[in-house]
Simulated scan of single mutants.
Amino acid sequence: MKTNKIELLVLDWAGTVLDFGSFAPTTIFVEAFKTEYDFDISLAEARVPMGLSKIDHIRSVGQLPEVKQRWIERFGQAMNEEQAQAIYQTFMPLQIAKVADHAELIPGTLETIKWARDNGIKIGSCSGYPQVVMDKLIPVAAANGYQPDCIVASDNLAAGARPGPFMALENVIKLGVSNVSHCVKIDDSAPGISEGLNAGMWTVGLTLSGNEAGLTRQQFEQASSEELAAARELAKGKLEQAGSHYLIDTIADLPSVLEDIDRRLSNGEKP
Rank of each mutant, 00 (worst) to 15 (best):
S266N: 10
S127G: 07
F23S: 08
D188P: 02
A97I: 02
D262W: 02
K236I: 05
S189E: 06
P165C: 12
A223G: 01
E7D: 06
M92H: 02
T90P: 00
L8V: 01
I72Q: 09
T203V: 00
K34V: 02
G205K: 07
K136Q: 15
I173K: 15
A141E: 03
N144A: 14
V99L: 08
I186D: 03
D262Y: 09
S60V: 00
Y129Q: 10
P271C: 12
D135I: 02
E7H: 00
V133F: 02
P148S: 08
E111L: 00
N144E: 12
T16E: 05
C150S: 15
W71P: 03
I193K: 01
K114C: 05
N211D: 13
P65Y: 11
L169H: 04
I6V: 15
I41P: 06
A159N: 10
A32K: 08
F75T: 08
A84F: 03
L228H: 06
G210V: 06
T203A: 04
L137H: 05
E195V: 10
G120R: 04
Q77E: 13
I193Y: 06
P165F: 13
A86D: 07
M167G: 10
E104D: 14
R70W: 02
T90E: 12
F20W: 10
V152F: 10
T109D: 08
I96F: 02
